[in-house]
């Protein structure tokens, strides 16, 4: 059986919030080592890959691997029933038909428990090859979120150009054009504000801003986000989690 306790429900609430625009139904895979998920959106443009290692939980026990087929919208509704600061416990039997979600509010002495009906989710598992990326840029999540939001007011797509000078986001839409240039910088007092650019060779690719804005829902999970780009490979947008990560892959736009 599975029994997994999180000190703060906010972590799972934010994770589910950040994937629900991309994925409707998915399998949460629970194993001895932790909880993971891999799912593609219906149009096969974006893929989300989540790992929450067992050490990211206050308590974690999973005797044998369990696959939890979940409707993400339904899980979102249940998670909204708990407070951000509540202790959250997930429980499931070995061949479960429901996932038990328990919230404990120690201040109010309030315990609430909900059972989410599980479903069979027929899902292809994709092999994600190890990729040598041409460029990796780590920046504050708030900055990336702002850029994606601002440029989406002008256009549906953004061109991302990385060279040794820094990273440029630019777009050209019906009402006009915009661009933002970020240069590498290090902030010793506030390292989360640093911008780090690692580059093997310059790279320029275009991406759909609607998806980038979906990914930015994960901004509350981490202070920094890393973008990895290569050739015509999918963009990797990674947010680090306590003992894990949430990674989004986005297929680039092709040709012009």
């Amino acid at each position: 059986m599975l029994e997994a306790k999180l000190e703060q429900a906010a972590l799972l609430k934010r994770i589910v919030d950040s994937i629900r625009d991309i994925v409707q139904d998915c399998n949460f895979e629970c194993s001895e080592s932790g909880l993971s998920l891999q799912a593609m959106d219906n149009s096969h443009i974006a893929l989300v890959s989540l790992l929450l290692g067992k050490d990211g939980f206050t308590d974690y026990r999973c005797d044998r691997s369990i696959s939890l087929g979940v409707n993400v919208g339904a899980l979102t509704k249940i998670l909204k029933c708990g407070g951000n600061d509540d202790v959250l416990t997930l429980r499931a039997e070995d061949k479960p038909s429901v996932l038990s979600v328990m919230f404990e509010d120690s201040i109010q002495d309030r315990i609430s428990e909900y059972n989410l009906k599980l479903m069979d989710v027929d899902q292809e598992h994709m092999g994600i090859p190890d990729t040598e990326y041409s460029a990796s840029v780590t920046m504050p999540t708030a900055e990336f979120q702002r850029i994606a939001r601002d440029l989406h007011t002008l256009s549906d797509s953004v061109e991302i150009d990385v060279n040794k000078e820094g990273i440029t986001f630019s777009c050209d839409g019906d009402i006009g054009a915009g661009s933002i240039v970020l240069k590498p910088s290090s902030n010793i007092d506030r390292p989360e504000q640093s911008i780090n650019v690692e580059i093997v060779e310059p790279v320029t690719l275009s991406f759909n801003l609607k998806y980038l804005n979906h990914f930015c829902k994960a901004s509350g999970l981490s202070n920094q986000v890393t973008l990895r780009l290569s050739g015509e490979a999918p963009l990797l947008v990674e947010y680090k989690l306590p003992n894990g990560f949430i990674r989004f892959f986005l297929a680039p736009k092709i040709g012009d």
Partner: peptide, 14 residues
């Protein structure tokens, strides 16, 4: 205009 690529070509189904 650029067309939106798909992931299928990059990731193989296991």
């Amino acid at each position: 205009t650029a067309t939106q690529g798909r992931l299928d070509g990059f990731f193989k189904v296991l």
